[in-house]
Amino acid sequence: MLKLTRRKFGTVALASTAAAVVGAMTLSPAVAADKINVGILSLASHSPSIIAEERGYYAEQGLEVEFVSFQAAQPMAVAIASGDVDFGLTAISGGLISLADKGVIKVVGGALQEYDDIEGQKVIVSKKAHDEGVKTPADLKGRTFGITTTGSSFHYMAHKIADKEGFDRAEIKLKPLQKVPAVIAALKSGQIDAWSIQPNIADNLTSGPDVVEIGSISDYIPNYQVTTVFTSTANATDKQDLVKRFLAALSKGIADYNAAFVDKTMSEEDTAELVKAIHKYLYTDQPLEKADPQIRAGAMRFNENARMNVASIEDQLEWFKSEGLVPEGVTMDKLVDTSFVETF
């Protein structure tokens, strides 16, 4: 009966989210432990998983991986909760915590993180706002700030800036615009003043005349655990071995990614090969020569061995609670399963 309700939940919930998800949705096998579905977004931050597949790390662990593409993190979280997808990487959002509170998903590992020595997420403003005197994040008081949705990582970052700069959170006027392209359009045209985003997108924007960089997120949220690995509670409790094998394979992919794009210790030959492999999934609408620099640019470090910054996650959870975006009763135990990776 549990299976039945979960299936039904998937259908109901998915119908209410993106239609694209339905098309991409495949059913997870009931018994076969080594055939798994992994959700990815078309972003460079999902490369380690692709590397693990292309270099055969998943196969080494006896895993047969099928990638399922999503347009946004939220439907991916829902698909994992429903059991249609087994693993995913995404930022901690209100929706994700809400699902964890209902006991259907768990964070099991860390992925992207801010490090002081690596270029991380940037605070950028429109040319118009810059001309009006918004030169540092401290000037964001009374300004508009683009976010995708309430309870997104952008929302969190905006408030952390306000907290650190010592003005009221309400003094940053948040503008929910649902999608990243909409935020970009609004920023470029000066409809909103500011935004914070991963370096590859930020660099792309600031290279044009409309957008100016004014700060780094790592100054406001040191060691921010930006994205995490998560799976369904069913997997985390009943198929611990499967989760371990997945994380082991992903860790090898992470090591390659960091070596190739962050530390740049990998040979150019191997790196080019990785880029080629990643290009099978990312920027597929562009030729390899054009996609290559975009795949390499602005890479942020993934945590070795999917280590997890529990302190950062707890800070995020506390922020969600303080804003009343998630139920008061959510605990770290409900959200995170620390038994799989090293935590700090």
């Binding site: 979280a77 809400s98 309430t150 948040l174 929910p176 615009l177 649902q178 609004a186 909103i192």
Partner: peptide, 25 residues
């Protein structure tokens, strides 16, 4: 109300959806 709406039934529904608050939805 997808675009920069602080208030509105539509934005309330969108917010409920992104927070997975089904009762509000």
């Amino acid at each position: 109300e997808m675009i920069g709406a602080e208030f509105g039934i539509g934005s309330y529904i969108l917010m409920a959806g992104s927070l997975f608050a089904l009762d509000q939805l």
